[in-house]
Amino acid sequence: MELNKINKLLEKYDNGTTTLQEEQQLKRYFSQETVPPHLESYKAMFAYFSANEKEQFTKDVPLTPKRNNTFYIKWISVAAVAVLLIGVFFKSNVFVQEDLGTYDDPEMAYNEVVKSLEMISSNFNKGAKKVNYLNAFNQGISKVDYLNEMDNTTRLIFKK
């Protein structure tokens, strides 16, 4: 292609009025090894553009893994809720079984109550007996009070 035509095309190119075909022509022209020195800057531009056209997206298109993730999370949460519900259900069953039964005959009920109250009082008395030992402790403390008197005497001695 003669230089004249190229120059005209380049002017159009700079003004943004070239068609795609004309740009292809320019690109082809500048892909040759030697261009006139005043057009070197265009050569660099077109070289850069053609080099960039070839860059590719090499990573995988991740369509399945992402969907699987949310899918699993959904079902795991459903499972967790199910486990919780089962737990609560069995727990409440245990409470229901804590029914201890009643007596139909009032006299028998009275006897039973007396028996359990007696057991409580005897055990209480046993405990109270043990507490009596505290008195001995109090006696010990009153003996220790004599030490105060000894203190008094020593003070008198050192004063003089």
Binding site: S31, A44, M45, A51
Partner: peptide, 25 residues
């Protein structure tokens, strides 16, 4: 920076071109 293609020019020219191509970037 991306890697640029080899344009089959002499080494000197290639270095120069690569340099100005980098400048374009």
């Amino acid at each position: 920076h991306s890697n640029y293609q080899d344009h089959k020019v002499s080494l000197q020219k290639e270095l120069e071109a690569n340099d100005s191509v980098n400048w374009v970037a």
